[in-house]
Design a protein around this nucleic acid. Sequence first.
DNA 1: CAGAATCCCATACGATACTG
DNA 2: CAGTATCGTATGGGATTCTG
Lengths: 136, 136
Amino acid sequence: MTVSSSTNSPVPGGIFPAGCPSRTVLDHVTSKWGILLLAALADGPQRWSQLRRRAEGISEKMLAQTLKTLEADGFVRRDAWPVIPPRVDYSLTSRGDDVVAVLKPLVTWIAEHAEEILVDASAQAILRDQTPVPVH
Amino acid sequence: MTVSSSTNSPVPGGIFPAGCPSRTVLDHVTSKWGILLLAALADGPQRWSQLRRRAEGISEKMLAQTLKTLEADGFVRRDAWPVIPPRVDYSLTSRGDDVVAVLKPLVTWIAEHAEEILVDASAQAILRDQTPVPVH
DNA sequence: CAGAATCCCATACGATACTG
DNA sequence: CAGTATCGTATGGGATTCTG
């Protein structure tokens, strides 16, 4: 633990300037459905309807919108067959592979710890409010 | 990247069940300001006003709200001195250290690639619309 | 300094209906 | 099947004011 001098701050400046490119891309990748879709696509190319099922709870609107954003950012490739009925496959680009490589540890860590974390949070809520946590 | 299924099918089931603990914690950690505050706190304990400056653009409301959520989840510890004027330090818990360890590679990767990604996205928008990208 | 409380709005998001 | 279009709502989030 540093006894900080009055002139030398132990912590540097801002994390990201507001409105910089990193903020934008960060919002795309870590958006509610962005993470889930990237994680799903990590298992290989998949069709629209598969993605809709695997990202449980997503609406068609958000599926379309999120896939478009990820495609525009170069994380996802869209391949359409000119057949009836239509068939479209979505897959990760190499850039998508790269971002998934750094995203995966986060998702895995959270999957392994989420339960314990929320139990702690509930316990704290009880101690704070002296009222039972709602059971659904 | 299947976290919730144990089948051996090439493209397995859902990523996370809707409304499961992982979704909740994922939303907390990857929220707009959650990421930024965790990244800021990775540099050591800091006071309210420092965090407010480093997470550039955050409002007091969101700073308070996000810190409370992260504290309830056990990622952040809050230490208040009983002095006038008040002094409060925020720091990462060991669990906070753990999540930052998996979060930091993502933030770093995005910082290194964001510029290039958005240039590509703009170029695609031009090709798609045959109209210049709006300049704000 | 470190918040809490209040008001308000933009938009992210969901539900439904329609189409090539 | 793979979307688009439209509408309605919930809430994430900002600005301002007040206080110990």
